[in-house]
Design a binder for these strands. Structure first.
Length: 265
DNA sequence: ATGGTAGACACTCTA
């Protein structure tokens, strides 16, 4: 079984590319982030025509997450916890998570809030959001330590200095700060391992390259998209790739798809 | 090449 995650940065703006990638990549489950549309605008039929069931969560032109599956799509949920924080006054829900059971795996497509800057209220919102995710994940595994869970998506955190093209460039920025890296480490400590890294060793291995300043051509990126697997999932991982080819050319997302190969349970 | 990247939407926000 093959499981993928991909921040597409608008599913409608590059629908042809997304469909072509899904169709040629032999993926059973695909988690999308930043679909940038409401549910009624999501091109559900086009993915169904490729043989996938579809679950999407989108409330506005921002954020938006989806799951595509050709191995079943059950028990869809849009909040991983009743304690998920909302941003703003009044607090407004954002479409940053959707979960479902696909082929026996509990998969969550996640778009972690961008902290913007270290002194922005969005930064604390991001840290709180990650804390609630960690608590939820911990509870799931406490109830069933063998539950196969995949927390996948755009975490907007580069966990180590090897995960950015130049640590000095990011000094004082989000994505690399101590508290963000501690929040990521807390997810790992809760039982969710980065199952891609063993197959894609760095440094210099990235999943995102800014559109500006020819960052992709200069190989100046960040590794911020992950597949985090519970023990019951992680031990089944037999391979993983970052499809940087998909970042090339006109009309590419600024993120590359990440694909994990799983053995049968 | 007087720009700077891109997407949503309607003017400025988000990343």
């Amino acid at each position: 079984m093959r499981l993928a995650t991909w921040n597409v940065n608008s599913v409608r703006a590059r629908l042809d590319r997304v469909l072509a990638w899904v169709d040629r990549s032999d993926v059973d489950v695909v988690a999308l982030q930043e679909t940038k549309c409401k549910d009624e605008q999501f091109p559900t039929q086009a993915f169904e025509d490729l043989g996938y069931q579809v679950a999407h969560r989108g409330l506005s032109q921002w954020n938006g997450v989806a799951l595509l599956s050709r191995v079943g799509l059950e028990d869809v949920a849009t909040e991983f916890s009743p304690a998920v924080p909302h941003f703003g006054e009044p607090a407004a829900a954002e479409a940053r998570a959707i979960g479902a059971t696909c082929g026996g795996i509990r998969v969550w497509s996640l778009y972690v809030p961008n902290g913007r800057t270290l002194d922005d209220p969005h930064y604390l919102y991001k840290l709180r959001w990650l804390e609630v995710l960690r608590d939820a994940g911990r509870e799931w595994l406490a109830a069933d330590p063998e539950l196969p869970v995949a927390l996948v998506g755009d975490f907007n955190i580069a966990p180590t200095d090897d995960d950015v093209w130049d640590p000095a460039f990011f000094e004082g920025s989000t994505h690399v700060s101590g508290p963000e890296r501690e929040a990521f480490a807390a997810l790992v400590e809760a039982g969710f391992a980065d199952v891609v890294r063993p197959f894609t060793p760095g440094p210099g291995v990235f999943t995102y390259w800014d559109y500006q300043q020819l960052r992709f051509a200069k190989r100046q990126g960040m590794r911020i998209d992950f597949v985090l697997g519970s023990p019951g999932l992680a031990r089944r991982v037999s391979g993983a790739t970052i499809d940087r080819e998909e970042r090339k050319g006109k009309g590419a997302s600024d993120h590359a798809p990440v694909v994990v190969e799983l053995d049968a349970p």
